[in-house]
């Protein structure tokens, strides 16, 4: 066991973890933030996507110990006070979800897509770059619509 320290949604946190503890388990079990989901646990579905030092990554395939000193943002870190982040609001507005299980990962990926491609990101780029996020209820039509609308408001 060793102590790992990082900044989680702007707050300094630490925990005594095993080397094999995954970042997603550190976030959910040690920090009690269950917005980040575990879908497949095999790096494919994207429900566990968080930002580490500003980049969208799969927290089920990242060791917590490897995030020593990192800045981590989860879906809980997006809203400011009672106001949803523009991307969260767009998913609500455009019904970019059904069961909602994939949504936290979709939103974290979407924000990363906009950061790298700009507000006017095309539908084609959105579809291509969401390939690492799987939704098993809705199909992707409203998700893509939500990302495009959220991008414009970011």
């Amino acid at each position: 066991m060793s102590v790992v320290k990082m900044k989680l949604n702007g707050k300094a946190v630490s925990g005594d973890v095993e080397a094999r503890t995954l970042l997603v388990d550190f976030i959910r079990q040690y920090q009690g933030m269950t917005g980040t989901h575990v879908g497949c646990d095999t790096s494919q579905c994207g429900a566990c996507v968080v930002h580490v030092n500003g980049k969208a990554i799969k927290s089920c395939t990242t060791l917590a110990v490897a995030c020593e000193g990192a800045e981590v943002t989860t879906v809980e870190g997006l809203a400011k006070g009672g106001d949803l982040h523009a991307m969260q609001a767009a998913f609500k507005e455009h019904h970019g979800l059904q069961c909602g299980f994939c949504t936290p990962g979709m939103i974290m990926s979407a924000i990363d897509i906009v950061k790298r491609n700009g507000k006017n990101v095309s539908e084609d780029v959105i579809r291509r770059e969401l390939s690492g996020n799987i939704c098993r209820c809705t199909g992707y039509h409203n998700i893509v619509k939500a990302v495009q609308a959220g991008a414009a408001n970011m």
């Binding site: 994207g46 969208a56 990554i57 799969k58 897509i113 690492g132 996020n133």
Partner: peptide, 9 residues
Amino acid sequence: IGGVHVRHK
């Protein structure tokens, strides 16, 4: 290669 998240790592 892979998806965005894989390419980031």
